[in-house]
Design a protein around this nucleic acid. Structure first.
Length: 493
RNA sequence: CGGGAUGUAGUUCAGCCCGGUUAGAAUGCCUGGUUUGGGACCAGGAGGUCGUUGGUUCGAAUCCAGCUAUCCCGACCA
């Protein structure tokens, strides 16, 4: 084995790192906490981005771009938001370097080029955007304002992990302004539903939608909606959030509009985002000890076609032609195929390589099978190999891709469902978290103190209060105080 | 940021404790040949200022310090 992958059982974290690095998705860089997204990883992100972008536009949003830098005075305008992010901000203090007079060939920061006002590298863009919205919004006719931006943000995290938590990451952030509380709330819900739709239908990953408790809420929001997914180690990954911001930012940035009755009102706001972290979720939810497993709808290459090559040049040429013909036919149906006719690598090497890369289907075209009117097709999700007639191959492949997409979702869903447990006893709660990782539904008295205490004792946090949560009488798992519903607990990334 | 570990060829690592020729291996890479239905084989070859800066020393991959990066365990977090 040229590229050994640590097994999940041996070390889950190393397994994850191996997949990212050896699967060719990303690489470490010379910058602390920042990664290089390699072409294969970026192709995956482009697919995700393009689909989401289309979904945003179908729901009436438009794209714009706001500056990377936020003047400190703007950043601090919304107090809670500023406080929440303050301890992880990169700050620009100077605008010039100069050659070091004492050390030839080296540069130093020019002390004379100190900025009057420091610039914060955006950890999120509410401040700069709401400062702009003030200029754009005067009348109810200017509302709703539905803007999204694709951007990079910087959050100076203590400890970073490829895709899951990097100091700089790519994301989209939607920032909307509305005339009424109800409209803004509807937007908040619309977007969390859109994210759930994307993650479930494209990433093949089931999610639980819910509301964050007060202590897990976005800094500056009145309510944070979240989608939570379960990874193969039973831990939760927050995969997307949609915030109802109330009038907090409108008040902080003095954004008012005149309504039909000619009275001034503050506007209502939402913001929502998903990031390259979704790639981490995709990897951890579906992959196995042989490498990545890409859901067909997002896979950079959905099919790899490998023609068998031999000394017989004439025969080899026929195999390569067949492979290229199939690729063209697939392209007509919108299926992304890759032909590997590299004669310097043996088939076994290629099989292993494309399994590592997670390509959903592998089609092998060889003289022996072709004489029998069949080709061998192997699917990545189940590792099954089977022969299929050469007639209507594109149709067969399309069917298989759909089946893989569905199978991956079903598999992830049954794994998740079998790892959600209702618990009513705190000792069982603690024991379960250590022995059988997963989600736990338990009663909670609704206080931040209890939530903190549970976190301290078990490292588990309230992931969300699920939407459409069944109401039932119960007693808080820790304090025994009365409770009307169960909330979702888990250890999280 | 606290605790632990690590950084030597593209990659994985040995050498360091006990300083002293020209720093090794496997794998990968290049060339030629034989191969090709699950990570091929033979022969030849290229590739390293030992993470970085400074210190100790006649002499540093080896000893000491700072910095930097990565991994693991915490705290923080999408």
């Amino acid at each position: 084995m040229a590229k050994e992958i640590t097994s999940r059982a041996e070390n889950y974290s190393e397994w994850y790192n191996d997949l990212v690095l050896k699967g060719g998705l990303a690489d470490y860089s010379a910058v602390r906490g920042c990664m290089v997204i390699k072409p294969y990883g970026y192709a995956l992100w482009e697919n995700m981005r393009d689909i989401l972008d289309k979904m945003f536009k179908e729901t009436g949003h438009v794209n714009a771009y706001f500056p990377l830098f936020v003047p400190k005075s703007l950043f601090e305008a919304e107090e809670k938001n500023a406080e929440g992010f303050a301890k992880e901000c990169a700050v620009v203090t100077h605008y010039r370097l100069k050659t070091d007079p004492d050390n030839k060939g080296k540069l130093i920061v020019d002390p004379e080029a100190k900025l009057e006002e420091e610039l914060v590298v955006r950890p999120t863009s509410e401040a700069i955007i709401w400062n702009t919205y003030k200029k754009w919004i005067q009348s109810y006719r200017d509302l709703p304002l539905l803007i999204n931006q694709w951007a990079n943000v910087v959050r100076w995290e203590m400890r970073t992990r490829l895709f899951l938590r990097t100091a700089e990451f790519l994301w989209q952030e939607g920032h909307t302004a509305h005339a009424t509380r109800q409209e803004a709330m509807e937007e908040t819900i619309r977007m969390i539903n859109l994210y759930a739709d994307f993650v479930e239908n494209y990433m093949a990953l089931p999610v639980i939608k819910g509301v964050k408790s007060e202590s897990e809420r976005f800094a500056g929001a009145e309510d944070t909606y979240t989608i939570e997914a379960m990874m193969q180690d039973g831990k939760a990954l927050q995969s997307g959030t949609s915030h109802f911001l109330g009038q907090n930012f409108a008040k902080a940035f003095d954004v008012k509009f005149v309504n039909k009755e000619n009275t001034e009102e503050f506007v209502w706001a939402t913001s929502w985002g998903v990031s390259t972290r979704l790639i981490g979720a995709l990897i951890m939810a579906h992959s196995d000890d042989d490498g990545l497993v890409m859901p067909p709808k997002l896979a950079p290459h959905q099919v790899v076609i490998i023609p068998f090559l031999s000394k017989n040049l004439e025969e080899t040429e026929v195999m390569i032609d067949k492979a290229n013909d199939l690729k063209k036919e697939l392209a007509k149906m919108g299926i992304r195929a890759l032909v590997d006719s590299d004669e310097t690598k043996r088939p076994g090497f290629k099989f292993a390589e494309y399994e590592l890369k997670g390509i959903p289907l592998r089609v092998v075209i060889g003289p022996r099978d072709l004489a029998n009117g069949v080709v061998e097709i192997a699917r990545r999700d189940t590792k099954e190999k089977a022969f299929f007639p050469t007639d209507n191959l594109p149709g067969t492949i399309q069917g298989l891709l759909e089946d893989i997409q569905q199978n991956m979702f079903n598999r992830a869903k049954s794994f998740r469902d079998s790892n959600i447990t209702k618990v009513d006893d705190f000792e069982v709660f603690q024991k379960l978290l250590d022995e059988k990782p997963g989600f736990i539904l338990a009663h909670w008295d609704g206080t931040a103190e209890t939530e903190d205490k549970i976190k301290e004792l078990t490292k588990a946090t309230i992931r969300c209060i699920p939407l459409d949560n069944p109401q039932e009488d119960g007693k808080c798992i820790l304090t025994g105080k009365s409770s009307k519903q169960r909330v979702l607990f888990a250890r999280a990334y």
